[in-house]
Amino acid sequence: MWLRQQDHPSYSAAMSRQIVNAICRTFPGAEVSDPWGGGHDAWKVGGKMFACIGSTMPGVSVKTDSVETAQMLIDAGVGVRAPYFHRSWVNLPWSTSKDELRYRLAASYRLVRSGLTKTAQARLDPFE
């Protein structure tokens, strides 16, 4: 069983649920929900998830463009395998720097947003 996030050894001020949520909240059309109950923060755009903070595992899981990219990030020590997600997702630990976190969240958001229908994309405000 995992410790509470703030009690986990890898927890640091570099990243927290509050910081992740503050960043994701700035993305056009991004919405948060707890689809499974129990304290998850699932960030979605157009109904498709781009980031998820679990209720027990420390860190945030983000989508990458491929299994190979996810494996490269894991091999480089940037993240770990995101349990319960496709292998193209990685979990960024709480020790991730704020700049890296912002970059990975934005990349995941862009990837998911680009997969929406043209109509759904047109309804969203521009992003960077």
Rank of each mutant, 00 (worst) to 15 (best):
M1F: 15
W2I: 14
W2V: 14
W2F: 09
L3A: 15
Q6E: 15
Y11M: 07
A13W: 11
A13L: 13
M15C: 05
S16M: 02
Q18D: 13
I19S: 10
V20T: 02
N21T: 08
I23Q: 06
R25W: 14
F27K: 00
P28Y: 10
P28W: 10
G29L: 08
G29N: 06
A30I: 03
A30P: 03
E31G: 12
V32P: 05
V32C: 14
S33K: 11
S33H: 12
D34V: 05
P35T: 06
G37D: 11
G39E: 12
A42W: 05
G46N: 03
G46Y: 11
M49G: 05
A51Q: 01
C52T: 07
I53G: 00
T56I: 01
M57N: 09
M57P: 08
G59K: 00
S61H: 07
K63A: 02
K63D: 00
D65N: 08
S66D: 09
T69L: 10
T69S: 15
M72G: 08
L73D: 03
G77S: 10
G77P: 03
V80F: 09
R81N: 09
P83I: 04
H86T: 09
S88L: 08
V90T: 03
V90M: 00
N91E: 10
N91W: 09
N91R: 15
L92V: 06
P93W: 02
W94R: 09
S95C: 07
T96E: 01
D99A: 11
E100I: 08
R102A: 13
R104I: 02
A107C: 05
S108I: 08
Y109H: 05
Y109D: 00
Y109I: 02
R110A: 14
R110W: 15
R113H: 04
R113Q: 10
K118R: 14
A122R: 08
R123T: 12
D125G: 06
F127L: 04
E128A: 14
